[in-house]
Design a protein around this nucleic acid. Sequence first.
DNA 1: GATTGCATGTAAGTAGTTACATGATTAC
DNA 2: GTAATCATGTAACTACTTACATGCAATC
Lengths: 193, 193
Amino acid sequence: MAKSNTTAYIILGLLDHEELSGYDIKKRIDSMIRYFWEVGYGQIYPTLKTLESEGLITKKSAESSKGPEKYLYSITGAGRVVLKEWLEIPETKEYTRYEILLKLFFSSRISAEENISRINAFREQHQRNLEMITLFEKNLENVMAENTDHLYYYLTVLFGEQVYKAYIRWAEQAVNLIEEFKIKQPDNPENSL
Amino acid sequence: MAKSNTTAYIILGLLDHEELSGYDIKKRIDSMIRYFWEVGYGQIYPTLKTLESEGLITKKSAESSKGPEKYLYSITGAGRVVLKEWLEIPETKEYTRYEILLKLFFSSRISAEENISRINAFREQHQRNLEMITLFEKNLENVMAENTDHLYYYLTVLFGEQVYKAYIRWAEQAVNLIEEFKIKQPDNPENSL
DNA sequence: GATTGCATGTAAGTAGTTACATGATTAC
DNA sequence: GTAATCATGTAACTACTTACATGCAATC
């Protein structure tokens, strides 16, 4: 298999627990995984095809609840071996790209007000994310009181909580600093191209 | 220009302050920007070519300190317009991908010890990052006491600080939770393929 | 004499996004 | 009747990564 086709490992990881269709896989990803790794149909269906041709998964027809025909995929023994190999090697790197920081970094020509409202929008977005993830967290805590199977899922949710909180803290700090410096230099007529 | 060729805007943003060669651009990115957006030579040189063909930057020869011939690029008026347009529109999205969370999410077949050491490696990495960024921060604070030009650069550094701290906090929390649950379920013989 | 830094770039490949295309069923 | 959900996929494109290729100058 390709060196780092992460989509393939996500699919194998999901199929390790249950048989799923491409559509089901997308739903699982969107409900639990997309917060730290997004995948679209344009990747899922082609990857299913290659995984099948490599013998790591098998395909079978299934009756669909409604709409077009449905195919269920299952992981094979070879697929489990490949998955486990991937799980055991250390992760290569994380991948974070913040367009907002890029824009701020280059924003000397932009007014303080515009920058502040950009940062506030960012803060509000992540306050909503934090609220949502807090609900997830409570539900998971209830589930885990009976069954600890979801411990690692819970850890990914806690990660989100910490990171969203960090974003919010930073946004508050950043707005305060911009305002402080605006007061220190109240007359800056150079804001033209 | 292409809808979202971020590399192009980074180059325009850097050239907005000073004339630079492709090599210089890479150095600037690696020293200040790579923490939130990495760019390689394989993107820089081709992008310089297209930006020049679009009239957003101009190229001229310059004497090189050593080694091969050197070209300096400058931003044009049209380039400044395009840059400002980009700076003014809201950012579309941030892009975070954490392979470590993916591996944890699927790690029910992996031993608690392996997961703990994975998380510890992550924590140590980010403790080093935090130390490094704290030095950056102090230097910048000294510079800013005289000249507030670097306020927005400083904000990106503060972002890094908050995020690295969040990573470290999470890692500590995660290891504690795994250990706690390990104690609750001391005999789990199912760890085979 | 070896390594690092300066400086240019290309080629091939992979991964990922976006838009398109189709169509049935169910709930409102 | 309209929107949402179920369900499949492809094509074109963009962005990005990795590996390669070259070679001088200065330092160790």
